[in-house]
Amino acid sequence: MILSDLLTRPVIDAHGHSLGRVLDVRFVIDGAPGQLLAEARLAGLIISPRAATSFLGYERTDEKSPWLIASYLRWRHRGSFFVRWEDVDRLTSTRIVLARSYRKRSAALPD
């Protein structure tokens, strides 16, 4: 599977309500040790209820400058959240369905 197949895909909850689209996919290099790096494991999805494409990730950092541009982009992505991969119930051919018990987490990047 290629990553573009996940990006911008619509996401719904178990009741079929729309939650937005996949803005980005978070990986963590903490899987099984590999030849040079450990495996990059898919940790979860960042979902935006508003805009389908990310731009510069201002919604995930506390970067505030240049002020005008930073605040515009943050405003465009307000309400973005992160869900763990364990909270994904299934993929259909066009959508991603979250589990009944999914939890919205902050999309902020750890320092």
Binding site: L56, E63, S65, P66, L68, I69
Partner: peptide
Amino acid sequence: ILLVANDKQYMGDEVNGRATNAVAL
């Protein structure tokens, strides 16, 4: 260029100061 000059990933502590950003904007 303006965006990257403000990006800590690339610039570390050498990001634009406020004055430069104001003029550039």
